[in-house]
């Protein structure tokens, strides 16, 4: 499963980035990239590829809306066609009034009323809380990444970033927060959107029905790198999810080779720990994403780039070029072999 997901993730890389010598298009273009994916991988971010109870309800509503608006459109087109074709001498006031009122007022009102009732009847189910005892995941919108906190029924909260794993077939209660600007949490294949509003906690219940890799996005413009504020969602079997969560709760394993050990020293010596946490080391910053198991994630920079040493090196040395406006400073003053060692260390944080 993990290998398969990694292959999927590699496929997400846009063609411009797969070109090894490519200097162009430093900023990944996620939307275009997804659209270009082969083999149906573009459907990881499609509301028309539902993999959750809530998304299936929304897809159903969408097709009813398409059908209803098509009826209205056909009525208006028929009216237009009739008005163009009718000769003045055959004008019948009673008949024309019937057509105008029928197609122009009554038909749209009836169709819209049906669609409104249908839509409203679906809403309570979409915004209802998950049953008590459901897995609770607190997601905080940052600029421009996602802080994820699992709150298991037993044990300490587990803080992660930019990647969410969910057990298939079980309702999950998301609690959504922001302390900066308004964001919107959206996994198109699993559920509808929900805003993250500073000063409030909003909630969203999600019940995945299919395993696989999906893409979540910020759906509310939130600043310069809004379009690069994404996250990976992995829906897996319950046992696999439990194993993953238990592993994420553990501290980072010490680096096991000289290059990675040097990378760890560089990481700590250059102040990275002021912003990032790597559990098991002195790095305990909370400004940026928790990196304890960064190497196990599918992507970096909020699902903007594949998670490999080459992209990690570029991210460390030139973060602003990859994600304009990011608070992460670029470390281009470091020697390239030090940057390489840090990338190897971070990639080794499995």
């Amino acid at each position: 499963m993990t290998h398969h997901l990694r292959e999927l993730c590699r496929g997400i890389e846009p063609p411009s980035q797969r070109d090894s010598g490519a200097k162009r298009a430093e900023v990944a273009l996620p939307g275009s990239a997804v659209a270009l994916l082969p083999d149906g991988h573009s459907r990881i971010q499609s509301a028309l590829n539902p993999a959750g109870v809530e998304a299936a309800g929304i897809e159903n509503l969408f097709w009813w809306m398409v059908a209803g608006t098509t009826v209205v459109w056909l009525g208006v087109m028929a009216l237009t066609w009739h008005s163009v074709r009718t000769h003045p001498e055959s004008f019948n006031r009673r008949r024309e009034a019937f057509i105008i009122v029928g197609c122009g007022a009554i038909l749209p009102t009836v169709v819209l009323s049906i669609l409104l009732v249908f839509g409203l009847s679906a809403l309570p189910g979409l915004v209802a809380p998950a049953p008590s005892g459901s897995l609770k995941v607190v997601v905080s919108g940052e600029m421009w990444w996602w802080r994820v906190r699992y709150e298991p029924a037993e044990g300490q909260p587990i803080i992660l970033a930019n990647e969410i794993h969910l057990p298939v077939g079980e309702p999950v209660q998301f609690l959504l927060e922001s302390d900066n600007v308004i964001h919107s949490f959206w996994i198109p294949s699993l559920a509808g959107k929900m805003d993250l509003i500073p000063g409030r906690t909003t909630r969203l219940a999600v019940t995945p029905t299919k395993t696989g890799l999906f893409r979540g996005v910020c759906a509310e413009y939130c600043g310069t790198s809004h379009a690069l504020m994404k996250f990976d969602v992995v829906v897996e079997e319950k046992e696999e999810f439990n194993r993953w969560l238990a592993h994420q709760a553990t501290p980072a394993a010490p680096p096991d080779n000289p290059l990675a050990q040097r990378g760890e020293k560089q990481f700590l010596a250059n102040g990275c720990g002021a912003c990032h946490t790597v559990r098991g080391t002195n790095a305990a910053g909370v400004v940026g994403p928790d990196l304890t198991h960064l190497g196990s994630r599918l992507s970096i920079a909020a699902a903007s780039w594949p998670n490999d040493s080459a992209h990690l090196r570029r991210w460390i040395a030139d973060s602003d070029k990859i994600k304009p406006g990011a608070y992460m400073p670029k470390f281009d003053m470091l020697r390239s072999d030090d940057v390489n060692a840090m990338a190897v260390y971070l990639k080794g944080l499995k």
């Binding site: 009323s113 409104l116 409203l120 809403l123 309570p124």
Partner: peptide
Amino acid sequence: LFVSLVALFFGECY
């Protein structure tokens, strides 16, 4: 009437 319809479907604060 459209605005009022919402009251038919929502019984609690979300």
